[in-house]
Design a protein around this nucleic acid. Structure first.
Lengths: 238, 238
DNA sequence: GATATTTATCGTCATTATGACGTTTATTAA
DNA sequence: TTAATAAACGTCATAATGACGATAAATATC
């Protein structure tokens, strides 16, 4: 006769403390200064006062993904972000406060005047340059590193960069973004050629004059065209 | 004054059943017949007797990754497999036996005469063609689908395919593997050109005559060269 | 109001990669 | 000897790439 699953579980776990489940969020932002990461001053012991990613425990009655969304909404106030699961971090000793397995999520935010000075809901928050991330608690620096790699992977095949730009953007802005994501320089003329060739940009009749006398032509991303192309397995590669 | 973390947790979780943590394994194998998936007859209720991935609960005192390795070793008897975390599946209702969050791992096995007739450790196991996977319990079919996508991603940039081939293999074999992974046909002449151009194959002075009168030249993968190239950011793309 | 300055934009060219094929080779079975 | 068959090799037009040089538009300066 088969044991029912829960009795297998309960016998197996009878003498153990349960494993606690948490989510942590790697939040990337981008503006004219570059690519940034949102970090927080930890508010509880152990390690109170240290820099950290933001996270929370997962409730029994909520989807793991929803727990991540909740954290993101509470801390940024934004509803519609690009969010993707990164990895589950499950080493025994990763959290010195107990056995906590953390499922990390990463997300992308367009920085603008409204959201760049975040200091939300009693959290002390700060945007830091992606190349100047301080030491974070626990394995949070590993999480950031892995998230950066994932961002690079994604940007390679999907027009994910546009999640980080305002609706209207210039080619130099887009170039800066890709250079920040890949931590390298691209030839601007070749970049231009490739990005235009994708057919995913719509040239507007406006210019942005904030960075040069001449001004740079504004473009917007053609979501319709993207949806059409991606159905046929289109790849957006630089 | 700060609350210490565990007291935050314990108060938060006082009235809740703990979330249970499990691992499930998507095990791919490859031989002359094609790409296959290892599935198991579930041995306990609920859903006993149904086809399923193999998995187990994670103990409080073991790393999540080690739990996956343990499952893989117990079911396949093999120690050194390619193993990678796939995704954490965390919907509330994903397991009708209780609140179980499952972290899925996928792995690759070279099939040969020793391991293709697995029936290990009281598990009823079966290799099925990747295109003929039956309905599995819970969200296991989703896991397989996602793992297949991940395998395709990986094979695009890393010579991961070699994990699925014997040490000595022929170009037609390698072609078959890539066609199975991407579920498509490649032009054999162009495939040959590209794969040779990578410089990662060492031509041997032997032939495999099992599939043709003429016989096909055997190659082996040049791990040294791969390590050298990958340090400079080499990408293995088809 | 001519000129210098600065960022943005457009153009060129040799080299390499790609896709789509046709042809030959080595071996064994008939 | 030849037919059959999978494996291996070769060709060519076209497209993509990397590395540059040159121009253009607007403002600031003399």
């Amino acid at each position: 006769m088969f044991k029912i699953k829960n009795s297998v579980i309960s016998s197996k776990y009878k003498n153990q403390e349960p494993i606690l489940l948490a989510v942590d969020c790697i939040i990337f932002g981008f503006d004219h200064e570059g690519l940034k990461l949102l970090i927080f001053k930890r508010e509880f012991e152990p390690l109170a006062g240290k820099w950290s990613l933001i996270g929370d425990f997962v409730n029994n009655d909520e989807n793991v993904e929803d727990a991540a969304y909740k954290v993101l909404k509470e801390t940024t106030g934004l509803e519609s972000l690009y969010v993707e699961q990164l990895h589950a971090f499950g080493k025994i000793e990763r959290d010195n406060g107990g056995r906590v397995v953390s499922i990390a999520y990463w997300s992308l935010i367009k920085l603008n005047d409204e959201n760049k000075n975040l200091n939300v809901a009693n959290h002390e928050a700060r945007w830091v340059d992606i190349n100047k991330v301080p030491t974070l608690i626990l394995d949070h620096n590993d999480m950031v590193k892995m998230a950066m790699g994932r961002l690079q992977d994604r940007a390679r095949f999907r027009p994910i960069g546009f999640e980080l730009l305002p609706d209207k953007f210039t080619l130099p802005q887009l170039l800066n973004l890709y250079e920040a994501i890949y931590q390298t320089k691209f030839d601007d003329r070749n970049f231009r050629r490739k990005i235009i060739k994708t057919g995913l940009l719509i040239k507007l009749d406006e210019k942005d004059k904030s960075t040069s006398k001449r001004g740079a032509i504004l473009y917007k991303f053609d979501y319709q065209q993207y949806n059409k192309l991606s159905k046929d397995g289109y790849l957006f590669e630089l």
